[in-house]
């Protein structure tokens, strides 16, 4: 469907149940069409269709329980580990169906990295935390290369200066913000194409949050980033496109500026002006 559209050069039309422009012209990194998620009998995500453009930050906002985290976790199949979870529809990474039987989920997760709500470094040294990914994927062939990868990743995550002289100390001994940046370094060490961030700043203080936001903006040069956030200010600050979820529906999606200044849908308007949420 997606291929046909790009081949024929037709104008992209938004799916009927979503306001704004959930689909984009031009390059698409991740594309979802009629995605549904069920937890047992609960219908958690209803017919969501959207596009995520490369080298952009896409923010998912919405009230608690609206399904934004659930949908995010579909993008690297993290929902697979929940037994009762079932996903239908079509989710493609670079045009390839990630729920296809032939797709190796391990490889997929190497391409689509993830940073979680609560910083969760391994109870190992800082070095080991970052080195783990490249090592299990066989991305490095010797110790020097590994050190190189670890240093670059820590540097990109803006953590190198703070931990340079104590790479062997435990990652769990860092402060909350540093731990979260360590988790980001760990994610980018395997050179993913997409990084999913599930409320990465919800456990952090404002200064640590500011650092992470700065970092997200820098990382956009090299990676496609999808971020779930509860803070509308954060969405406005870091993202280029924003999607608003409500009760499992994708209510509206579009350029962040449009969403926050001139939303089409009543619900979006209510949410961003703080009338509910």
């Amino acid at each position: 469907m997606l291929d046909q559209q790009t081949q024929t050069g037709q104008a992209v039309q938004s799916p009927e149940n979503t306001a704004g422009n959930p689909l984009v012209d031009g390059g698409v990194k991740v594309a979802a069409r009629n995605a549904n998620v069920y937890y047992g009998s609960k219908h958690a995500i209803k017919d969501v269709s959207l596009d995520i453009a490369p080298n952009e930050v896409t923010a998912f906002i919405g009230p608690s329980g609206c399904g934004k985290s659930t949908f995010l976790r579909c993008l690297n199949r993290m929902n697979d580990i929940i037994d009762i979870c079932r996903v239908t529809g079509d989710i493609r990474l670079d045009g390839e169906d990630i729920y296809d039987r032939k797709v190796d989920v391990v490889q997929l997760r190497a391409r689509v990295g993830m940073v979680f709500q609560k910083p969760n470094p391994f109870p190992k040294s800082i070095f080991e935390n970052v080195a783990y990914g490249p090592r299990i994927h066989g991305l490095v062939s010797n110790k020097d290369e590994l050190e190189e990868v670890v240093t670059t990743s820590l540097e990109r995550a803006g953590l190198l200066n703070e931990v340079q002289d104590r790479l062997e100390s435990p990652g769990t001994g860092l402060s909350g913000g540093q731990q979260q940046r360590l988790c980001i370094a760990r994610a980018i060490a395997v050179s993913p194409e997409v990084i999913l961030m599930d409320e990465p700043c919800s456990a952090l203080d404002p200064i640590a949050t500011a650092k992470i936001e700065e970092l997200i903006d820098e990382l956009r040069q090299n990676y496609t980033i999808v971020i779930v956030t509860h803070s509308m200010q954060q969405a406005a600050r870091v993202s280029q496109r924003t999607a608003f979820f409500h009760l499992g529906n994708l209510v509206e999606m579009g350029d962040t500026e449009t969403i926050f200044t001139n939303p089409e849908h009543k619900l979006t308007q209510g949410y961003i002006t703080g009338r509910f949420g």
């Binding site: 391990v106 997929l108 990295g113 979680f116 969760n120 783990y132 988790c183 760990r186 060490a189 395997v190």
Partner: peptide
């Protein structure tokens, strides 16, 4: 969270 972290970086 430890399992998620490991699976998240692509551990089998």
């Amino acid at each position: 969270s430890i399992r998620e972290a490991a699976l998240g970086v692509g551990a089998s």
